[in-house]
Simulated scan of single mutants.
Amino acid sequence: MTSAGDGNTTVKLPAEALQGQRTSSAYRLALGDAGVQAAVILFLCVLWETVTRLDLVHPFLLPPLSQVLQRLWEDILSGTVFVDLALTLYRALSGFFIAAAIAIPLGVLMSRSAALRWFFDPLISVGFPMPKIAFLPIFILWFDIFDTSKIIMVAFSCFFPIVTATFAGTSAVDKWPVWSARSLGAKDREVLWEVVLPLASPQIITGLQIALPVGMITTVVTEMLMGGRGIGGTMITAGRFADSVGVFTGIVEIAFLGFVVIRSLEYIRGRLLVWHPESRR
C-alpha cells in the first residue's frame, strides 16, 4: 500500500494503482514526444513543398516533395523500392552482426586479460579514428566487387564502436557485486554471465546503437562507390542521368529506413533493460 496525502487527508493507494498511474504518465509523455516529432517533420515537408512551388529554389536543385513522393509511389508499385531496401538492409545487418559476434567477445576478453589488452589496445586506438572507407579499395582487391567486400566493409566500420563500448562497459563494472558473487562461491564463468555482462549490458547496447547507423552509412556509401542494386547504387545511377527526383527519392528511402532501424533498436533496448533503472524514466 502507498499513501498519497493532500493537507490532513490521506488516501491509501494500492501499489498496482500507483504503477498504473506511472505507466499512463509514461504513455502520455511518449505520445507527446511523438506528436512533437511528427509536427516537426510535417513542418519541414510543408516548407519543402512551399519553397519549391514558389520557385525560390530551382526544381533541379530541389524538386518538389510531391514529385518525390509520386516517384516513390511508382517505385513501390513496381517493387523496385523493396528490392533496394532489402539489399541495403541485408548488407548493413550482415556486417553489423558479424562485427558484433567478433567485437563483443573480444571486448570482454580484453577487460579480463592484460595480454590481450596490451596487444589489441594500440590497434583499436589507431583504427578507431581512421576513415574506414579508405580501406574499400583493399577489400575490393582482396575479395570481390560484389556483396562480400561490401559486407566486410560494413563489419569493419561497426567493429570499433562495439569493441570499445564492450571493453569500457565490462571494465567499469563495480567491484562490490563481483566480490559479493565470489564470496558466495560463484565461479568465474558464473560471475561473467550473471554479474559482469548484465551490469555492462547498457553500455554494450549503446555501442550497438552507435554501430548500426554507422553500418548503414557505410553500406550506402559503398553502394554508391561500387554500383549495383541498393539504395546507394540507385541514387548514384539517378545522379549520373541528372535525375534529381530519383536522388531525393533515395534520400527519403534512407530516412525512412534509418527511422525504422533506430526505433527498433530503442524498442529492443527497452525490452532487454526492463530491469535497469533507466527503464523507469
Rank of each mutant, 00 (worst) to 15 (best):
M1L: 15
S3H: 15
G5P: 14
G7K: 07
N8K: 06
T10K: 05
T23M: 12
T23N: 12
S25K: 05
A26K: 01
R28S: 13
L31P: 04
L31G: 04
G32T: 03
A34L: 10
V40E: 08
F43S: 14
F43M: 07
L44R: 01
W48L: 07
E49C: 14
T50E: 14
R53N: 15
L56P: 08
F60E: 08
L62H: 04
L62Y: 07
P63L: 10
S66F: 14
V68I: 13
L69K: 07
G79H: 02
D84E: 09
A86Q: 12
T88Y: 09
R91N: 02
R91I: 01
A92P: 07
L93I: 12
L93E: 12
F96L: 08
F97I: 09
I98P: 04
G107T: 07
F119G: 03
I124T: 02
S125A: 11
V126R: 00
M130E: 02
K132H: 10
F135P: 07
L136G: 00
W142S: 00
I145Y: 03
S149E: 04
I151G: 03
F156C: 03
S157W: 00
V163W: 04
V173K: 12
P177R: 05
L184E: 02
K187Q: 14
R189I: 06
V191S: 06
L192E: 15
A200P: 15
S201D: 09
P202I: 00
Q203H: 10
I205N: 03
G207H: 10
L212E: 02
L212W: 03
P213K: 05
V214S: 15
G215W: 04
I217L: 14
T218S: 09
E223F: 04
G227D: 00
G228M: 07
G228Q: 02
G228F: 02
G230T: 00
T234M: 15
G239V: 02
A242W: 15
V245W: 11
V252F: 07
I254S: 08
A255D: 01
F259M: 09
F259K: 07
V260A: 13
E266V: 12
G270I: 03
R271S: 06
H276E: 11
R280A: 15
R281P: 13
